[in-house]
Design a protein around this nucleic acid. Structure first.
Lengths: 256, 256
DNA sequence: ATGTACGTTGCGTATTTTGCAACGCGACGG
DNA sequence: CCGTCGCGTTGCAAAATACGCAACGTACAT
């Protein structure tokens, strides 16, 4: 592990909370300000930070540039964007897109609800593997062995009274999700938020992303959230088609 | 300057070009792979990179998280978003939002054209100070002395036959921009692209961002681009109002 | 003019980083 | 099955870099 690099990353995270002076940042790291200045100079060279006229440091536009390239490496995001924007407009609720990568489920796009009461989230945040609709969809799309390995490695924190609290319960839920083609979060992550999630598939049929609709219970109860599921499924089917996915004919048709 | 940190940042930039192995990255930096592994481990700890099942490294979701926070620190972006999205839908052309920070003009949002032929750009990229509409708008919004200092520090690369090639010409153009309330890029940055840009103001009247419409000449000639200027001006006025800007009454009204 | 706050520069040493050598694992070929 | 290859990983001592000190520079207030 690299100590200098860790310090620099701590600086970036701190600046995510707001502008800071050289002295602020030196105090944060408990090092001499010369040390911090050198790190900042290096970060500034790549535009990851900039310094304003009052000598306060801010996160810089180089982060957007890196982030944009990272997002471009996830083509499903651009493919899904118009569809999810439309779903957000039609339902008025928060729509998320998430992907499974590096052993975690992360939000890679978001369309905010128009309502004043909404669920807090942000692109780049991790979704809890055991209690969110998108995570269930993505885990359900993994091969059986990998699904079991992941389920066995999770720390099952009971977020609410509804949260699944062990691998057996989660694996059973994931089987249901794989069977029915969608997932629900019935107040499992946050007591007063309900979500439905559905898979987006690529040309080879692999689940490459999950889209969801999240609604605070003050707006819609769980049954009403289920009522928007067909819209979500239609949307994910359209995105999947754009990703090259073709629905297989039903088995009966093959007997002709 | 910090050598370790520089190396890590080079890794991030390289991964912006696509997935890489440990050996690829060690060759890039011309260091032993142990050294690279330690840097990657540190980056992985903050989710700035992740390693897939084939041991290839990718840019990670922690970048989205940092970038999201950086964007949240630029509230004009959220304020402008619905307006710019509407402008993009109504005109069908590429719409950009840019800000002046750390001595450079950077794109902080973008709404892509629906047309197959469009201008290449990306959030986080810098706009050329001497030949883009957004840069002219933002520089024109600076205090006179600062404007002159910036104009004197630019490297005037002649991108096209139309490009302004010296501080006197640019300062004269900026005076026109400040007077008329909008800027044009008449094939100055790229021969076959025309743009119009307009300022977004905050409650104190300072220019805090610039919005623009960019059109390839194969779609609209310069006169036709000017024809969409009223839509742009209406949009930037609406965003400015949402930022707290109030148009001052004209001088005649004060004589009552 | 002096003092304070805070950013900046140059230098030698202390600490961290680095690369070597060896190991571990999986895939492939004989 | 065994051996080899390719490539990731670990532990250690030496090399290199990072670090903090001391001093300086600038702006502001008294």
């Amino acid at each position: 592990m690299s100590q200098s690099l860790s310090r620099a990353l701590r600086l970036l995270n701190e600046l995510g909370e707001g502008p800071r002076s050289l002295d602020d940042l030196a105090a944060l790291l408990d090092v001499h300000k010369t040390t911090v200045l050198r790190l900042l100079r290096t970060l500034e060279g790549d535009r990851l930070v900039f310094r304003d006229a009052a000598y306060r440091y801010h996160l810089g536009a180089g982060l957007f540039a890196l982030s944009s390239r990272a997002l471009e490496q996830r083509p499903v995001r651009a493919t899904a964007a118009p569809h999810l924007a439309a779903l957000n407009r039609e339902t008025g609720h928060t729509v998320h897109l998430a992907a499974y990568e590096g052993g975690e489920v992360v939000y890679i796009d978001k369309y905010d609800s128009r309502h004043p009461v909404r669920m807090y989230s942000r692109i780049g945040l991790r979704a809890r593997l055991h209690c969110t609709a998108v995570a269930k969809v993505l885990l359900a799309g993994l091969p059986e062995a990998e699904r079991r390995a992941v389920a066995g490695s999770i720390e099952y924190e009971a977020m609410t009274p509804n949260t699944l609290t062990g691998p057996e319960a989660l694996l059973a839920e994931l089987s249901r999700v794989a069977e029915q083609g969608y997932a629900v979060d019935h107040g499992e992550h946050e007591t007063f938020i309900n979500c439905v999630g559905a898979p987006i598939r690529d040309a080879g049929g692999r689940v490459v992303a999950a889209a969801s609709i999240s609604v605070p219970a003050v707006l819609l109860d769980f049954e009403q959230v289920l009522a928007v599921l067909p819209d979500l499924l239609k949307t994910t089917a359209a995105v999947s088609a754009d990703c090259g996915w073709h629905e297989h004919p039903i088995k009966k048709a093959e007997h002709h």
